[in-house]
Amino acid sequence: MSWEKVFFALLIFPGLLYAVPTAWLMLWLERKFRARMQGRIGPPFYQPFFDFVKLMAKRRVLRPSFDSIFMMGLPLVSVSAGLLALALLPISSDSRGFAGDLVLLVAFLEVPSLCSVLAGFASRSIFGQVGATREAILSITYNLPFLTAIVALAYSAQSLRLVDIAASPAGGVRALAVLTICLCLPVKLRINPFSVSNAEQEIYSGPATEFSGPQLAMWELAHGLEWVALTGLVVCLGLTFRTGTWIGDFAIYTSLSLVLVILLTILATGTARLKIQQAARFYWRWGMGLSLVALILGVFPDIERFIR
């Protein structure tokens, strides 16, 4: 990858210039669609942007200097990780990537959750700490099936490059692995029924309880970028078809991401929050089961051929 391409990917598409408005659009779509399904009007489309501006304009809460470094630094790290993860996605057919970018992507996708755990403990609030504990437990729970699915994908494509995986032929392994990643989306995005670590009625907003003003604005942005990155990941890995033109790929990618947002919103609107044990049981049973089948099929491709 040339430097120009890296900068283009980071700053323009699918990086900063594309990702931030899309993040706000997705946050709005989630709120608006949920409101409509509940018989309410819902906010206008510029609401997340206004929220961001308003939070940015708020006064900072005075804290010991070491704490405020952490509390401003962690959401910023989280935002940057989201942008970096997006830059790696093989959206159009001419993206090249580099060997091992899959590993980097998985690492970047895990950073927001890690930052959230750290922020919860750094905030010195009992609710933040309980939320951080829950987030840490959940991250172990969902990462096992998630990583197993990624391994299965990489093994079946015989490559650690995202482009190769995206270009690999469709099959049982890929379908099962993408399904597992889809299963992990609600818990990674902390929406119902797995909104355990930010359960409002139990522990306020969990790790983000003590955050306010610009720090909270950054968390919101990081959350929006997580939406963009994770739905993008599923679309990139799940879609075997590429138009070949840049603009066509872009259109398909964006519209499918928004469809995924709507599907996730329907799930979140139609369920109650589960307890952490129940969430963990779900991922150990279904997530693990699916991803193990994918891995076995990936390692022994003969089985799939035999079934066919």
């Binding site: 009625q201 139609g270 109650a272």
Partner: peptide, 9 residues
Amino acid sequence: VMGFQTLFM
């Protein structure tokens, strides 16, 4: 309290 906002509405 169960986090089921739709039913609340």
